[in-house]
């Protein structure tokens, strides 16, 4: 199988690799680049555990071919904290106990971040809609919804 070059920015740092053509971004990130924060739950687009942000949009890395991301800016949950300080969404997930086994968490946090980036003060319905592609088998969702609303409040207090 022919190798193809891929080059993109991952959480602000340049990455360049040779991969097999047809490799999903999920596999490229986890197996080649070593960022294991996106999780492979279903590889069918159904669970959302592999969610990443590509050029500001939420995408499923299990259904994205890595070579289509040349030149893109990719954000994953492993790139959110700065200097050991958690991102407000991560902080809120801890504060509301929105993570139990944690498998869905990195994907859900990506969905929450992209929502708050575009809609800093979302309604509850907007939060539910934004998280509708992310399955959690542990929490029952309420604590996740509360986490996103809490992160939004924290953001607006910081901005005030």
């Amino acid at each position: 199988m022919a190798k193809v070059p891929v080059q993109f920015t991952l959480n602000g740092s340049e990455k360049a690799e040779f991969i097999d053509s047809g490799t999903t971004l999920l596999n490229a990130l986890r197996d080649k680049i070593g960022d294991t924060s996106p999780k492979g739950g279903c590889h069918q687009g159904t669970c959302g555990a592999c969610s990443v942000i590509i050029d500001g949009e939420l995408r499923l890395s299990c259904l994205t071919l890595a070579e289509t991301c040349n030149g893109a800016a990719i954000t994953t949950t492993s790139g959110l904290s700065e200097g050991g300080v958690l991102h407000p969404v991560q902080r809120a997930f801890l504060d509301t106990f929105a993570t139990q086994c944690g498998f869905c968490t990195p994907g859900t946090i990506m969905a929450a971040k992209v929502l708050l980036d575009h809609t800093p003060n979302p309604s509850r319905d907007e939060v539910v809609e934004a998280l509708s592609g992310n399955i959690c088998r542990c929490t029952g969702y309420e604590s996740i919804i509360q986490a996103v609303l809490l992160a939004a409040r924290a953001n607006s207090q910081n901005a005030a």
Binding site: G45, L58, R59, L60, A111, V114, A130, S132
Partner: peptide, 9 residues
């Protein structure tokens, strides 16, 4: 169609 990530694709 789908959830937010699916709709972006």
């Amino acid at each position: 169609v789908g959830g937010p990530a699916i709709r972006n694709m």
